[in-house]
Amino acid sequence: MARKMLIKALPESWGGHIQQAGNGVEALAQCRENKPDVVFLDLTMPEMDGFQVLETLKDEGIAPAIFVVSADIQPIAQERVLSLGAKAFVRKPVKSDELQAALKAQGLL
């Protein structure tokens, strides 16, 4: 459900190919295989959380523009994801205008 809401929040002009992963292990595998330009990553996922995915991507030199999408709004969590290379932190539930502002801030819109 959260992934569907995120996809709906993307601008209509978003022209990229969208792939979804059901957990952190799948997300990491897709990043390794497909080398995406943009990744929207939740922190709370089964098998491997978002922090672990971020750390692994950083260690492996895979550097898409990562936007962490999470309900965990603790400042320490936000600081940690940014230190691991995330471009922005977007709060759940995702609001279209906030997501678009984050994408614009990174030159992706």
Rank of each mutant, 00 (worst) to 15 (best):
K8F: 13
L103E: 02
G107H: 06
L28A: 00
G15V: 06
L54P: 01
T44P: 00
E55R: 14
L43N: 05
L109E: 07
L57P: 08
G22L: 12
V53S: 02
Q19D: 14
V69D: 09
L84P: 06
E47K: 13
E60K: 08
R3W: 02
L54C: 04
G15I: 06
A21K: 07
L41T: 04
V25S: 07
E79V: 00
P11R: 08
V81N: 03
C31I: 03
I62E: 01
A105K: 14
G107L: 02
K95L: 14
V94C: 13
R32V: 05
G107N: 06
I7M: 14
T44S: 15
V81L: 10
T44I: 13
L57S: 04
Q52N: 12
E98G: 00
A77F: 13
E79S: 09
D42P: 06
D49G: 09
V38K: 04
G16F: 09
L54S: 00
G107M: 05
K35T: 07
P11N: 05
I7K: 15
A65W: 00
D72E: 15
K95T: 07
S96V: 01
L6M: 11
V69A: 10
V39D: 02
M1R: 12
V81D: 01
V53R: 00
F51P: 01
D37S: 12
L6Q: 07
G15Y: 08
F40C: 05
S96Y: 02
R32S: 05
F67C: 04
A77S: 15
K8A: 15
V25W: 03
E55N: 13
N23I: 06
P11I: 08
L41D: 02
L57R: 06
A65T: 08
G85L: 01
A88W: 04
A88C: 04
M45Y: 11
P46T: 11
C31S: 05
V94I: 15
V68T: 04
G50W: 00
Q30Y: 12
L103W: 00
L82P: 00
Q20I: 09
I62N: 01
P64D: 08
P46Y: 11
Q19C: 10
A29E: 14
T44H: 15
V90H: 03
S70F: 13
A2G: 13
S13Y: 06
I73C: 14
K58H: 12
L43H: 07
L43Y: 06
Q74G: 09
I18W: 08
D37F: 02
E26W: 05
E26H: 06
H17A: 04
